[in-house]
Amino acid sequence: MCGASTVRRALIAGVIDELTLDIAPVLLGAGERIFDGVETLGFEPVEVLHSPLSNHIRYRRVSWRSRRRRPRSARRVGSGA
């Protein structure tokens, strides 16, 4: 099992709270897609660093409560009888 498939299995299992991706425009071998089979990520970027040779992006898991909460104006108010 290689690095990409290990990370993919952990993402699918939901056991990762923070993820740092270091992206460089170099392909070593055939490469492997890290997010294949991952239906939803549920992460938000918290830090992005750019350089001429690579990008570094740090993601943090968004809690399910904050994703599901609707603003007060969108909440339904019960109708009176």
Rank of each mutant, 00 (worst) to 15 (best):
M1L: 15
M1C: 11
C2S: 11
C2F: 11
G3C: 11
A4R: 02
A4M: 04
S5E: 07
T6P: 11
V7H: 00
V7I: 09
V7Q: 04
V7R: 07
R8G: 13
R8N: 10
A10C: 08
L11F: 06
I12W: 05
A13N: 02
G14P: 15
G14C: 08
V15T: 13
V15F: 04
I16L: 13
D17A: 04
D17M: 02
E18P: 07
E18S: 12
L19R: 00
L19M: 11
T20I: 07
T20F: 04
T20L: 11
L21K: 08
D22R: 09
D22I: 12
D22E: 12
D22W: 07
D22K: 04
I23E: 15
I23W: 12
A24M: 15
A24G: 11
A24D: 13
P25S: 15
L27P: 11
G29L: 15
A30K: 13
A30C: 14
A30W: 12
A30Q: 14
G31F: 14
G31A: 13
E32V: 14
E32P: 13
R33N: 15
R33A: 10
F35R: 00
F35S: 08
F35H: 03
F35L: 13
D36F: 07
G37V: 03
V38W: 14
V38G: 09
E39P: 08
E39C: 08
E39A: 10
T40Y: 00
L41R: 06
L41D: 11
L41V: 13
G42K: 01
G42W: 03
F43R: 09
E44W: 06
P45E: 02
P45S: 05
V46L: 03
V46H: 01
E47V: 10
V48K: 02
L49T: 11
L49E: 07
L49Q: 14
S51M: 01
P52K: 05
P52E: 14
P52Q: 04
L53R: 04
L53S: 01
L53Y: 01
S54G: 09
N55T: 11
H56I: 04
H56P: 00
R58A: 03
Y59R: 00
W64I: 02
W64H: 03
R65E: 09
R65N: 09
S66D: 02
R67Y: 00
R67P: 12
R67K: 03
R68D: 01
P71M: 04
P71H: 01
P71D: 08
R72F: 08
S73P: 05
A74V: 03
R76K: 05
R76T: 07
R76V: 04
V77G: 15
G78L: 05
S79I: 09
A81V: 10
